[in-house]
Design a protein around this nucleic acid. Structure first.
Lengths: 210, 210
DNA sequence: AATCCACAGTAACAAAGGGCACAAACTTAG
DNA sequence: CTAAGTTTGTGCCCTTTGTTACTGTGGATT
């Protein structure tokens, strides 16, 4: 864990801070597909990602979902932080996209470090900025783009995050992430296949050239 | 200006910080409808709102707009802050919705105060949180709601922000904010009028009971 | 082999929203 | 007053997306 922490965060964090994280943080290994945070939960610690990827999504009253963005190595979830600081319930759900290693830091420590370590403070602010920008991208995407383009973007991002040219999801799962219906996804995927951008198989999609 | 500052921010800021703001900040009075920040600009100072309201919007490559949220008394623009800190160009446009009084604080001071004043740090932090939450609302709105509902929400918010039951905008202007077309707005407004929720007049809309 | 089931393909239809065209009402400049 | 411009109302049609229903297929189970 120490080497991983250093490799991932040593450009951000000063040595004493790394030591404290080692002491106070709890290492977790989570397999793909687990919900590590859910809407309505109170949050007592925040995650620092060592490896893997986490998808963050939003849900409305009717249970409709929408993928907001992915968290990757070295990142943390600012929306969660915001909940911690504000003592409010989580506004989002977080699900591991791949097998993931992360360090959970208790929220009290996190606040303490804000005053104590410049590196931490900068990291936290940078995270907020990254999240704000990702959210702006998400808004752009749903406001300005049509489903065709959103689907292509989604597939591209998925390939990047999982580091795998085969997307091992059903059309239904993709539909949930994009907040649309299975039929529509099937239709658009078929169109992309006809354009030779991908090949459809049972339970996975072979990306050729998006 | 001093009284206004105290009235608006004294619950957040310690006295020495208020003094510094008075010394370093530049008071601005901006009439309604002015663009005080635009996409692609570099930003050297950030605004603290004393009174009035500012609308923050996003634009895509084709020039299509979308209202993100309003800033009101006591608030500041975190997206702008993020740009300052990251030394990047502004991602958004900000237009005064009403006549507005604000204090512009140079970005260097802002960074200095981050280490120096706990109150400032908390304020900045809180602002990020508020903006994140507003953006989540915006995402919800465009992802999960249909135009009818979005229009109603828009009108309600407008009444709240301008503190005026008459909305003095053309249908075209509303269409820009909601990223739709004038014809569609006219149609939906007519529907709301038939439901006795408002009265349509030339150049303004009388809100009755949304 | 027979059955079941999850997944995907597809047609047909419905609904929401956008675009165009034109008319009517009102405002402003000359 | 007249002409020109702005704002709004409305009919018609199109595209995109969503919905329903049915089919086929391959894999798993027994």
């Amino acid at each position: 864990m120490k080497e991983e922490l250093l490799a991932t965060f040593s450009n951000h964090f000063e040595q004493p801070l790394i030591d404290e994280i080692l002491e106070e943080g709890r290492l977790m290994e989570v397999p793909a597909g687990e919900t590590i945070m859910d809407i309505g939960q109170y949050i007592r610690s925040i995650p620092l990602l060592l490896s893997g990827a986490i998808k963050v999504l939003r849900e409305d009253e009717e249970g409709d979902e929408l993928l907001l963005y992915y968290l990757e190595q070295g990142e943390t979830c600012s929306v969660t932080m915001a909940c911690c600081m504000g003592q409010t319930k989580s506004e989002i759900r977080a699900i591991t996209e791949t097998d993931t290693r992360l360090v959970m830091v208790p929220v009290q420590k996190m606040e303490e470090w804000m005053g104590k370590y410049k590196g931490w403070r900068n990291y936290v602010f940078e995270s907020y900025q990254n999240r704000l920008n990702e959210l702006l991208q998400t808004v752009d995407s749903i406001a300005f783009k049509n489903l065709d383009q959103r689907l292509v973007d989604y597939l591209k991002k998925k390939v990047e995050v999982t580091n795998d040219n085969q997307i091992r999801n059903t059309h239904q799962e993709i539909a949930y992430d994009l907040h649309t219906s299975r039929v529509v996804v099937s239709r658009l995927l078929k169109k992309l296949e006809k354009m030779k951008k991908l090949e459809l198989h049972r339970n996975y999609i072979q990306i050729v050239n998006l």
